[in-house]
């Protein structure tokens, strides 16, 4: 399954309701190859992956995630130390330089979907909103693949 998802550009409601100036930036962000793993029930955290590309000429900063699927979505970083021990921790804000892209992929950065509100069923999809520091947002429709999926095409 070849999926290329375009971020749906949404003029930010936040931006218009606060004093934060809207600058060019997040409009130039494109999200590709988004996918998620199905969950077993709602007790285990879900996970989603994607590539976030900044096609513009200024840096953008991804500040957070929102979705009605999970009460606590957050970007996490998995790291494996020299002893082979893996751990994960919140990644904080993620800056994407002009022309660069950041990959959320197994074993690295991931969208961690804590407190699932419903099971993630294979074959369905959910929408995930990416918030940027300029007040812009991108809504991505993320297809849910099997638990054993390894990438956007499997």
């Amino acid at each position: 399954m070849k999926t290329v998802l375009y971020g749906l550009m949404a003029a930010s409601m936040f931006a218009s309701s606060t004093a934060t100036p809207v600058e060019a930036g997040s409009e130039d962000v494109v999200v590709e190859d988004a996918w998620a793993r199905a969950s077993i029930g709602v007790n285990r955290p879900g996970v989603a992956y994607m590539t976030i590309r900044n096609t513009g000429d200024e840096a953008v900063i991804l500040t957070g995630l929102r979705t009605d699927l999970a009460m606590m979505p957050d970007i996490h970083q998995t790291s494996t130390n020299a002893d082979g021990v893996s751990s994960m921790a919140p990644a904080g804000e993620i800056e994407i330089a002009p022309g660069e892209s950041v990959s959320l992929e197994p074993g690295g950065l991931h969208a961690m979907l804590m407190r699932l509100q419903r099971p993630m069923a294979k074959g369905e999809s959910f929408s995930l909103t990416l918030d940027f520091s300029d007040g812009g947002e991108i809504v991505v429709e993320v297809p849910i693949l099997g638990i054993a999926a390894r990438g956007p095409e499997s």
Binding site: M88, A148, R150
Partner: peptide, 17 residues
């Protein structure tokens, strides 16, 4: 562990492969 969202399902699917 089965509540592991990232590393464990990835390892399990690697092994399956």
């Amino acid at each position: 562990f089965t509540y592991c969202p990232d590393v464990c399902p990835t390892t399990l699917s690697d092994i399956s492969g």
